[in-house]
Nucleic acid binder design. Structure first.
Lengths: 338, 338
DNA sequence: CTGAAAGCGCTTACAG
DNA sequence: CTGAAAGCGCTTACAG
């Protein structure tokens, strides 16, 4: 691997000048620049990122932190990751998925290693020890999601409250007055205070109350089988329900299947509205689901922008933003019968 | 952030001595060692990985390369990643998921950046341009999967050939003579020559031929809906089939559902054997599927070991290994009727 | 517009 | 057992 020194020697300039050319950080005479570029070309020179990082005190690497990497990465998560990666690249950074377990030591180690410039924290809990740890450090960070009290934190989150209100309002507009909310929370989500689930539940409860609607709520794990079981449970416990809000990507196929087995027609007998999924997720069933899609691409982009803001202007104002889900009509919702 | 220099000053030794203590790389007098450790403690010192990397010419970072990050990351992929991460940690390395697109430049850039010591390449194709590129570089690497001619390459792969033979043999042992193989290849997999699909197909064809069995083959995308469609297609085109080998995690629920809708009992009328999945994948349906599980944890561990071998002994012999799937009986297979 | 030099935070022969 | 010094490959005031 040729170094800057090799290039400088071949082009007959100082290494400083080579650096100026590469970084375009000081004016260089056209002829000199040409010589340097020629030399780099000839040697196949590529700047060593380690040397650069040590000297400039910036690695230009951003770590995406997933808590103990979940069972699987949903399409939403992958789209988010892809978008974040691209945005980082556009802004001159590399984004990498850095796996660390949630226990005390590891995050400290990552922070103090000097390998990364900043952290994008995923799956933020309402009360999140990792956030406190990051706040105590000097490492810039941004949250995807937000804690219970995010006033002083840079974050991007989905506006589950308003998305839920939109969902309830849409169904009420179709004449439905007996709703069910099926969330994606196994026991662990409820206990750990995972924002999207907690906020959605609370908003659902408040909204049906406010509007004087009847409602039930079911928790359902992320699998077709659980979805099927949830459907059966619904038909047992609240057979009068006419509309369901489903916040569970992997349960949708099983849920519709469960209804279908009992002879329940969608949307004839029951409207089903998917929330927080993707267009592909909505297309995973027959009939295609009406959906409020999670803006994962936007979320990825904004997350990185929020972090890079912190990186480039450390003391500066921090962005805080929520983005709303996007309504997309399918064939699974319709006016109430009877 | 305190540096080694600060520690040295406080402990009244040279920075070399501090380094010896930290790395345990030369004998240090007990009293001196104690002073140094005391100083480190007091300052909350943590070695800067960048400085270390530049001086030692090793970053101790391994990049896991996923091609253009698929639609989603399966449970298998996540388990693999988790296991690889842990193994790397045990061996003194950090494993990170480094997203790069497949186009020419990016892999070069990663290689020459100096940020990583080695590469673990996932989803290897039979003819893989990335492998050629890595071979031209001096960067150590290891493959998960293998190319058409992997003789000179370090790799770990699943033995799909023998797993398929075991599957066919098992079903034939139950008296089945009309088999169907449902793979997980959309058009893209077939065209791109993805080893597991190509090898499984070929072995299935050869085995049924060799044993004089009847067979059909269906391609099916990774979704419940596609599985359901595949079941219907099977019942149309080859209704006499009595056993199915299913290599498709996300289609299994839909596939069984498709059979069920047509009144086909599993395993009474049709045996279904899942191949290349996980125990959880087998439990995603009712009845629970008999399965040949992918040894993803083992694969992750061995993949990292193979790479680290190359890192620690550059010219040394390279490991090549295949691991077989593990049979686990469920309730979806049984003797042929009639 | 260009260069000499210090320095980023470490490791590692070399000497004693 | 310990230290002085060179060096890893860059960036960045500073000087001219």
């Amino acid at each position: 691997m040729p170094t800057m020194r090799d290039v400088a020697r071949l082009a007959d300039v100082s290494i400083a000048t080579v650096s100026f050319v590469i970084n375009d950080t000081k004016p260089v005479a056209p002829a000199t620049r040409a010589r340097v570029e020629e030399a780099m070309q000839q040697l196949g020179y590529r700047r060593n990122a380690l040397g650069r990082a040590l000297a400039s005190k910036r690695t230009r690497i951003i770590a995406l932190l997933y808590p103990a990497l979940q069972r699987r990465l949903s399409e939403t998560a992958v789209k988010f990751f892809t978008s974040a990666t691209q945005t980082a690249k556009d802004l001159g950074y590399n984004l990498v998925l850095w796996p660390i377990s949630n226990d005390a030591g590891q995050i400290e180690e990552l922070i103090s290693s000097g390998f990364i410039d900043g952290v994008l924290l995923m799956e933020v809990q309402l009360d999140d020890a990792r956030v406190e740890r990051l706040q105590r450090s000097t490492l810039p960070f941004a949250l995807i999601g937000r804690t219970r009290h995010p006033e002083e934190l840079p974050y991007v989150d989905v506006d589950f409250e308003n998305s839920m209100i939109e969902a309830v309002s849409y169904l009420e507009g179709l004449g439905h007055s007996r709703l069910c909310f099926v969330d994606s929370g196994g026991a662990e989500h409820a206990l750990s205070g995972y924002g999207p689930v907690v906020r959605s539940r609370a908003t659902f409860a408040a909204e049906v109350e406010r509007r004087g609607l009847e409602s039930v709520h079911l928790s359902c794990e992320e699998s077709p089988m659980s979805g099927q079981n949830a459907a059966e449970k619904l038909l047992e416990t609240a057979p009068d329900t006419t509309a369901v809000i489903l916040m569970n990507d992997n349960a949708s196929f099983g849920f519709l299947n469960g209804l279908n087995r009992r002879g329940i027609d969608v949307p004839g007998d029951m409207s089903v509205l998917l929330i927080g999924s993707t267009p592909d997720g909505a297309a995973a069933t027959d009939p295609r689901l009406t959906v409020l899609t999670l803006p994962s691409t936007e979320l990825g982009r904004m997350g990185v922008e929020t972090l890079v803001d912190q990186l480039e202007e450390p003391g500066g104002p921090m962005r805080q933003a929520v983005v709303i889900c996007c309504f997309e009509e399918g064939q699974s919702t319709g006016p109430v019968q009877r």
